[in-house]
């Protein structure tokens, strides 16, 4: 009898464990991206990334695309002599991603708590909160908020920081499927980028799934870059010789046509 009870108890505990591991809170979200590689060829003008996956019913979604935080070096512009606006010195922002693209199923502020936004680097306010201006320039650090705003505006102007609220579409089902198409800016340099899909439940990030994709130079673009950086003398001579030949060749074409006489 005691053995029977023990077996029942074990079975109940096992079922409980199984149901917990099978619950949407742990394994429901997935993330895939297409294409896995973006080729920078001669006609490249950016691309469209399609991010798809599955998520638990009832969850909102935020997709974050970008790269690791690293120092970003710029020149800051100020007034010189009380009249002229010009570059005055160097400014370095630390702990800032080079590329930052967010897409979500709703307005960030309405689906996420402020603390969750800050903790998960979601939204420009979170970036400003974690960014640091390198020490050594007291005039700049006194006015940190202003320079951090300028940094975000500069990145937005370059299309390297973008937020697309409400663009993630969710198809309801036993398990939801989601999809979002995100424009990838041609200004983003080659490299490996990560995509993180976050399931939002009760204002908090409940689950995550990650995938990577690469942006790489191919064909003529790759060959020219290689030549410019690894054989600069040859590259320089080629640039000069082709320019001279082109100049004289067109001059001769015009001569044959009698245009210049």
């Amino acid at each position: 009898m005691r053995n029977k009870n023990t077996a029942r108890l074990t079975a109940i505990l096992l079922l409980l464990c199984l149901s917990l591991t099978a619950s949407p809170a742990i394994s429901a979200i997935t993330c895939q991206v297409s294409p896995k590689q973006i080729d920078i060829n001669l006609t490249y003008h950016g691309a469209t990334l399609t991010v798809t996956g599955e998520s638990a019913p009832g969850d909102d979604l935020v997709i974050r695309i970008g790269n690791k935080a690293a120092p970003a070096h710029y020149k800051y512009i100020g007034k010189a002599g009380g009249i002229f606006w010009m570059k005055k010195g160097n400014i370095t922002f630390k702990n800032v991603p080079g590329v930052y693209i967010l897409a979500s199923s709703g307005k960030l502020e309405s689906i996420l708590d402020p603390e969750a936004m800050k903790a998960n680097l979601l939204g420009y306010a979170a970036i400003k909160a974690t960014a640091e201006i390198e020490e050594g320039n007291p005039g700049l650090s006194k006015n940190e908020a202003r320079w951090k705003n300028e940094f975000i505006r500069f990145k937005e102007k370059q299309n390297l920081y973008t937020i697309h609220p409400g663009t993630v579409t969710i198809q309801p089902g036993q398990t939801n499927t989601y999809r979002v198409e995100v424009p990838w800016p041609f200004q983003a340099p080659p490299g490996t980028y990560s995509i993180e899909a976050m399931a939002i439940r009760n204002g908090k990030v409940a689950e995550r799934a990650r995938t990577d994709f690469t942006v790489a130079r191919t064909g003529m673009v790759a060959k020219l870059t290689d030549l410019a950086f690894n054989k600069p003398a040859l590259y320089g001579i080629m640039a000069v010789v082709i320019a001279i030949i082109a100049g004289f060749a067109v001059g001769m074409i015009f001569k044959k046509g009698g245009g210049a006489h």
Binding site: A239, A243, A246, G247, V250, G251, F254, K255
Partner: peptide, 18 residues
């Protein structure tokens, strides 16, 4: 500077003929 090499070569050639 690189494109000026081509433009000035073309222009120099035209002016040389003249």
């Amino acid at each position: 500077a690189n494109q000026i090499v081509a433009a000035s070569a073309s222009g120099t050639y035209a002016h040389w003929r003249l």
